[in-house]
Write a protein that binds this DNA or RNA. Structure first.
Lengths: 226, 226
DNA sequence: CGCAATTGTTACGAAATGGTGACAAACGCG
DNA sequence: CGCGTTTGTCACCATTTCGTAACAATTGCG
């Protein structure tokens, strides 16, 4: 199933450039040359994402962005802004517009495609509830409830396994002790946050060499290193 | 403009309870009793959010979730999961599958409405809740809690990171020492304003070349240069 | 220039944070 | 029930981080 991308720009050259590259990358492309057309097509074609030029005749990009955000049907639609000047970025960022990313002109089509994929991926990787997680030689098999390091099984308790799983699933992102308490211990507010430390320690002990994946972020929480 | 919510549950009691409360809160409500109907209605009515029961006849909630995520048209649609049991794994799994939040039965309708509002709000103020901030070759990744300059990681303490983040988020606008104390140190009025200076200094030291972004505005405070 | 106000720099003690080992309660299981 | 395992809490310690004060440098201004 191809994903549809709506490209909005009044300069036909730019549109063609983007269109060609997106099709090359396996997307379906629909286009619009002004704000009004953009809003209309967004509501009828339901694209997966919108590439939106900031400078448009009549209704400008920011306005289109606002309009899309206002309508429940398109409020969650990811938007990538194209801006001519770097100085305009701050308008996009500063205001409560809600673009998901931005690219400055002149841009490399390659970069744009990468950004688009990244944003679309964000929604999809969630969908693929991965049953096994692998980082280097550490492997976590969720349905089997087992973890192995360099092929050798690591004997973990239920809590330790869950802690490891949650951290590994969110690899790279710091998880605060409170977050971990909520997601590993499930809202059990009675529990002391220091308990997390103890479990991390036990986990590290058992992980042996794989303990290198568990990073302490002082003053914040813990992080699974990518 | 009312926002549409799709409520999916096979128990009519539950549906009515949710429906009543959502309408009370000013939402439009459409309902579905099974997974197939849910997917169909999601694609024709384009609701702003889906409230989805985990236990459904035929296709269950998780499956519906996956189906919605797979289709570009609904991939970004926010989903709140309802779970009957405090089923440990299913909750977490639900999140990884791509639900945006979850509520356990029995739930207070008030809580559900609050969660819905929170999620819908998120879409509207995305710009401020950006996950990464980029200025030139300086990149700040908030969930990862990392900052890089020309691709190289900068090791910052929790306070330094927060200070940098707040300044960068408000690039261009001067922040007074008092403002920074309030937003970085969170209302800790006991703290001396000179403390800010020291932290800015430490931050500059660590930033190295990127320190050029931190401007002193004499008599006022500090500013992140655009 | 010279002064006052403001900011940068340095250093240091206090406080916080996280790692560690020990312990007792709770749990699971035969 | 009894036993071993798991789990949450605590106290202690090393380390990092923080806040402040004291001093040097800079800036703005008449």
């Amino acid at each position: 199933m191809k994903q549809k991308i709506l490209v909005v720009d009044d300069e036909s050259e730019a549109v063609e450039l983007v269109e060609f590259n997106l099709k090359q990358a396996g997307f379906d492309v629909i286009t619009a040359a002004d704000g009004e057309e953009a809003v209309k097509k967004a509501k009828t074609h339901f694209p997966a994402l919108v590439v939106l030029d900031l400078m448009l005749p009549e209704i400008d990009g920011l306005e289109v962005c606002k309009l899309l955000r206002r309508d429940p049907a398109t409020a969650q639609l990811p938007i990538i802004m194209l801006t001519a000047k770097a100085a305009e970025i701050d308008r996009v960022l500063g205001l409560e517009i809600g673009a998901d990313d931005y690219v400055t002109k002149p841009f490399s089509p390659r970069e744009l495609v990468l950004r688009i994929k990244k944003i679309l991926e964000r929604g999809r990787t969630k969908a693929e509830a991965r049953e096994t997680i692998r980082h280097g030689e550490l492997e976590i098999d969720i349905p089997k409830h087992t973890a192995t390091w360099k092929g050798r099984a690591i004997d973990l308790t239920a809590t330790e396994f869950k802690l490891l799983t949650i951290l590994a699933q969110r690899a790279g992102r710091v998880q605060s002790r409170d977050t971990l308490l909520r997601d590993v211990w499930e809202y059990d507010n009675l529990i002391d946050t220091r308990t997390v430390d103890t479990h991390v320690r036990r986990l590290r002990e058992k992980l042996g060499g794989a303990a290198k994946y568990l990073d302490t972020v002082r003053g914040v929480g813990y992080r699974f290193v990518e």
